[in-house]
Structure formats: structure tokens, C-alpha cells
């Protein structure tokens, strides 16, 4: 279970998060939707301390943390319980596909090499890259790289996996393969928070959808609630824009 409350974050004069609450139960898949600048990515990054929130509290399981005053040790603790899949994958360029996954296990979790290899291979096969173990990231397509990123996150067995617009930087043809891997992960009831613009996908795999705009949570609920029965004006406007795009693509 992860819960953040009252998260505030300002970048110079720009208030990006204005008091956001979010709760993710174990095994829940939550999608965060919203226009650019709504603070969704910043929220995610505050959770794993890639950004330092100005205010806010966080609970992970039975441990409590202050987002503002967390010590280095506490931050490390949280970072070891969470994993992130980035928009630009951020794979380790000087490590092979296999090493990208094993390094977190051997260096951070202090697993021995043989076990780490076994775990890594299992997850890499799961994402469909069992045959590219000794390739380097530069030799892979964007979709393949992102799948390695997902395997890297999965292998660490974190309390929650944070996805920061995992398909936004991919060529359209490659988006599908990554989404189907994420869907697989969701079906195993691994706790996930996904920031995405893939509306249909979010609707399909999420247990809960959160709509953010202007630094606050406007509305949240089940996919049916949000997509079929939006309560707030802003939510309606946002969904309409996407419906128009959807029509245009057809």
C-alpha cells in the first residue's frame, strides 16, 4: 500500500502540485491521466524522491516518510522498495541487456551472480527479449529498450512500479508491444501507478483512474466512472479532446 497526502511542489514560481492525495492498494493498477503540465509526472517523481516535494507525507506499507524532510537513508530505503520505468527508458548504456537487469539485483539487493542471472533471464524472457541478452541498448529498437526497462523494474520485485509515460516517446508501431507487456504485468496484480496518454489502454487495464489538472486531482474513480460518467467539467473537456483525436485517427 502506498499513500501520499498533501503533496505540494513548486518549481521557482510555478506551482506544479497544489495539494495532491493518492492512495494505491496492494495489487492495484492506477492510471493517472491529464493534460501536460498537470503535475502527474512530478507527482510520480516525488514518490521516489527524484524530485523533492515542498510538502507532503508518504506511507509505504507500515513505514511513514515526510516527502520534505526525508533523510538520505530514508530516501534510499524508498528507492529500494520502488522501481520506475521512464519515458526515455534510461537504460545503462554501457551494460548489456542482461546486465541492465542483473545490476540492480547484485549491486543493490546483494544477490549472488547465479541467482541474479536466473531471475533476470526469467523476466527478460517474459518481456520477449530472452534472445538479446548480450546486446547493448544502442543495438535495440525503442520498444525493445523500453521492454528491458520494464524487466529491470520487475526483477527488483518492488512494492510498486511507477510508469512515467512509458510509451510517449515511442514510434506508434512500437507502442503496442510495450503496452501488451505492461498489460501482462497488470494482470499479475503487481502494484502499479501509470502516467499515460494512452486512454483506451488506461481504461482497459486500470482498477482506478485518476484525472489531474493544474496540480490537483480533479476526479478519480473506476474506469467506468471516469470515462462513462465524468462528474467534473474539466474531466469532460479533457475526455472530449481525446475523443476528437480518436475520431480523427479513424
Amino acid at each position: 500500500m502506498i499513500r501520499v497526502t498533501n503533496v505540494h511542489k513548486k518549481f521557482k514560481d510555478l506551482e506544479v502540485l497544489r495539494g495532491v492525495d493518492l492512495e494505491v492498494k496492494d495489487g492495484e493498477v492506477i492510471s493517472i491521466l491529464g493534460p501536460s503540465g498537470s503535475g502527474k509526472t512530478t507527482l510520480l517523481r516525488c514518490i521516489n524522491f527524484l524530485e523533492k516535494a515542498d510538502e507532503g507525507e508518504m506511507e509505504i506499507g507500515d513505514r511513514k516518510y515526510s516527502l520534505k524532510y526525508a533523510t538520505k537513508k530514508q530516501k534510499l530505503e524508498v528507492q529500494r522498495k520502488t522501481a520506475m520505468v521512464f519515458q526515455l527508458n534510461n537504460l545503462f548504456a554501457n551494460k548489456t541487456v542482461l546486465e541492465n537487469v542483473t545490476i540492480g539485483l547484485t549491486v543493490v539487493q546483494k544477490m549472488n551472480k547465479a541467482d541474479a542471472r536466473r531471475v533476470a533471464v526469467r523476466y527478460l524472457e517474459k518481456v520477449g527479449l530472452g534472445d538479446r541478452l548480450s546486446s547493448y541498448p544502442a543495438q535495440l529498437s525503442g520498444g525493445q529498450q523500453q521492454r528491458v526497462g520494464i524487466a529491470r523494474a520487475l526483477a527488483l520485485n518492488p512494492s510498486v512500479i511507477l510508469f512515467d509515460e512509458p510509451t510517449s516517446a515511442l514510434d506508434p508501431e512500437l507502442v503496442g508491444e510495450v503496452l501488451s507487456v505492461i498489460r501482462q504485468v497488470a494482470e499479475e496484480h503487481i502494484t502499479m501507478v501509470i502516467v499515460t496518454h494512452e486512454m483506451a489502454f488506461a481504461r482497459d487495464i486500470s482498477d482506478k483512474v485518476v484525472f489531474m489538472d493544474g496540480g490537483v486531482v480533479v476526479e478519480s474513480g473506476t474506469p467506468e466512472d471516469i470515462f462513462l460518467n465524468p462528474q467534473k467539467e474539466r474531466t469532460v473537456q479533457f475526455l472530449q479532446r481525446f475523443r476528437q483525436v480518436g475520431e480523427a485517427v479513424k
Binding site: 534510499l76 528507492q79 521512464f86 534510461n90 545503462f92 548504456a93 554501457n94 545490476i103 549491486v107 543493490v108
Partner: peptide
């Protein structure tokens, strides 16, 4: 070096030393 890899190291819980030794310094 691109900052993303450094963030990826943090996100999996590597210390600064581990990040430097395994990822940043070699590159």
C-alpha cells in the same frame, strides 16, 4: 552524460558511489 541514467540508478536504489562506479565513470 545524460542525467537520465543517473536518475535510473537512484530509482533502483543505488548509492551515489555505486552509481558513479558502475555507470557514470565507465561512460
Amino acid at each position: 552524460l545524460d542525467k537520465g541514467q543517473r536518475e535510473a540508478c537512484s530509482s533502483i536504489g543505488m548509492t551515489s558511489f555505486q552509481t558513479m562506479a558502475h555507470i557514470l565513470l565507465p561512460q
